[in-house]
Amino acid sequence: MVTETVTMMDPAGLKAIGAALAVGLTGLASGIAEKDIGTAAIGAMAENEALFGKGLILTVIPETIVIFGLVVALLSL
């Protein structure tokens, strides 16, 4: 007689993996998005210092992605 063993994964562990993916992937996405904006902001600032404020604000806008990721992670835990 053949017996089949079923391994169950711990739901808490899966949640933790999900949360980690949510934060990790959104963090990477924010980084990629901010890379070009940041370098562009530095370029504009090198010519005109008054653009510092605008450059800073535009650079951190993709930060919202990782914040959403964090919210999803916190809700799932």
Partner: peptide, 16 residues
């Protein structure tokens, strides 16, 4: 290639 940096700097130069 640093397109983002060069282009935005050049655009700032153009505004001058």
């Amino acid at each position: 290639s640093n397109y983002a940096y060069t282009v935005s700097r050049v655009r700032a130069m153009k505004s001058k």
